Amino acid sequence: MKTLFIGGIKSGKSINAQDYILKNSVVRPTYLATTEFVDAGMKERIDAHVINRGDNFVTLEEPLKIYEAISANKNPVLVECVSMWINNMFYHEFSLEDMQKELENILELNQTIVFVLNDVGSGIIPDNKLSRDFIDASGKLSQLIASGCDEVYHTIAGISTRIK
């Protein structure tokens, strides 16, 4: 079973995805944390996620090789979050094709995976190339993930609505 929770930043998608995987798992799920520590502000966000998930998950940190991390794990996996993984991949100069291949391989795995992804495509077109490239990649990859998922939830104001 593959599931996607997509929504704006601070929409509640992470909490709802955590609740979802905990309710639907018979074993302790793995929390695949993709965020690389960048600055004090990011550390605060990471710390809040650590507090939020408590001891309910086995935490695994992997900013780039998420296929390897997921495929080596037999428990249900919460990927938190795909947006930060895309950011990391761009930072380390991987191509959109590299990202697509990684996600295609993940979607072929026979295990429970819940993806969390920021919906960044509802705003204006940014004035710089890197931001445009990120938004374009995120949009294309969100379509790929959604097409390979059994369920997709859109989250607004803490409310996740099933759209697939």
Results as ranks from 00 to 15, higher is better:
residue 76 P to E: 05
residue 69 A to H: 06
residue 110 N to T: 10
residue 100 Q to M: 13
residue 111 Q to G: 02
residue 132 R to C: 07
residue 109 L to C: 03
residue 108 E to P: 05
residue 80 E to I: 05
residue 120 V to T: 14
residue 72 A to I: 06
residue 90 F to N: 11
residue 73 N to H: 02
residue 83 S to D: 06
residue 105 N to D: 15
residue 89 M to Q: 03
residue 134 F to E: 01
residue 80 E to T: 14
residue 68 E to D: 15
residue 85 W to Y: 01
residue 112 T to C: 10
residue 135 I to Y: 06
residue 120 V to I: 12
residue 105 N to S: 15
residue 101 K to H: 14
residue 68 E to P: 10
residue 132 R to K: 07
residue 69 A to E: 03
residue 79 V to L: 08
residue 83 S to T: 15
residue 123 G to E: 09
residue 84 M to P: 07
residue 95 S to M: 07
residue 82 V to S: 04
residue 108 E to L: 15
residue 67 Y to L: 13
residue 87 N to S: 14
residue 96 L to W: 05
residue 133 D to S: 14
residue 108 E to R: 15
residue 97 E to K: 11
residue 113 I to G: 03
residue 92 H to K: 13
residue 92 H to G: 07
residue 116 V to H: 02
residue 77 V to F: 01
residue 128 N to R: 09
residue 88 N to I: 02
residue 73 N to W: 03
residue 120 V to Q: 01
residue 126 P to G: 02
residue 120 V to D: 02
residue 113 I to L: 01
residue 128 N to S: 10
residue 82 V to W: 04
residue 129 K to R: 12
residue 95 S to K: 05
residue 100 Q to S: 15
residue 106 I to K: 01
residue 115 F to T: 05
residue 132 R to Y: 00
residue 77 V to N: 05
residue 99 M to H: 01
residue 79 V to N: 05
residue 127 D to N: 13
residue 98 D to F: 02
residue 125 I to T: 14
residue 94 F to M: 10
residue 117 L to Q: 13
residue 110 N to G: 04
residue 69 A to F: 11
residue 99 M to I: 05
residue 118 N to P: 07
residue 112 T to L: 09
residue 122 S to A: 11
residue 127 D to G: 13
residue 78 L to M: 08
residue 92 H to A: 08
residue 128 N to A: 06
residue 74 K to C: 13
residue 126 P to M: 08
residue 107 L to G: 01
residue 100 Q to W: 00
residue 90 F to W: 08
residue 114 V to G: 03
residue 120 V to C: 10
residue 105 N to Y: 12
residue 77 V to R: 00
residue 132 R to M: 03
residue 107 L to S: 00
residue 104 E to H: 10
residue 107 L to A: 00
residue 111 Q to K: 15
residue 130 L to Y: 09
residue 86 I to L: 12
residue 110 N to M: 01
residue 102 E to S: 00
residue 100 Q to D: 08
residue 130 L to E: 06
residue 68 E to W: 07
residue 73 N to R: 11
residue 90 F to S: 07
residue 91 Y to H: 12
residue 90 F to I: 13
residue 69 A to S: 14
residue 128 N to E: 10
residue 75 N to S: 14
residue 117 L to A: 14
residue 78 L to K: 06
residue 107 L to W: 04
residue 92 H to T: 13
residue 76 P to I: 07
residue 113 I to W: 02
residue 82 V to L: 11
residue 135 I to P: 04
residue 134 F to K: 04
residue 68 E to L: 11
residue 135 I to V: 12
residue 108 E to I: 13
residue 93 E to V: 12
residue 88 N to E: 04
residue 106 I to M: 05
residue 121 G to I: 01
residue 99 M to K: 03
residue 96 L to E: 14
residue 69 A to K: 11
residue 134 F to W: 03
residue 106 I to L: 06
residue 88 N to T: 01
residue 100 Q to V: 15
residue 130 L to C: 03
residue 91 Y to I: 12
residue 128 N to C: 07
residue 98 D to R: 00
residue 69 A to N: 08
residue 122 S to P: 09
residue 89 M to N: 06
residue 67 Y to T: 10
residue 68 E to A: 14
residue 82 V to Y: 10
residue 122 S to G: 13
residue 130 L to S: 10
residue 95 S to N: 04
residue 126 P to E: 00
residue 106 I to A: 02
residue 131 S to M: 11
residue 71 S to H: 12
residue 80 E to C: 10
residue 73 N to A: 01
residue 100 Q to E: 15
residue 123 G to L: 06
residue 129 K to W: 09
residue 87 N to F: 10
residue 135 I to T: 08
residue 124 I to D: 12
residue 83 S to E: 00
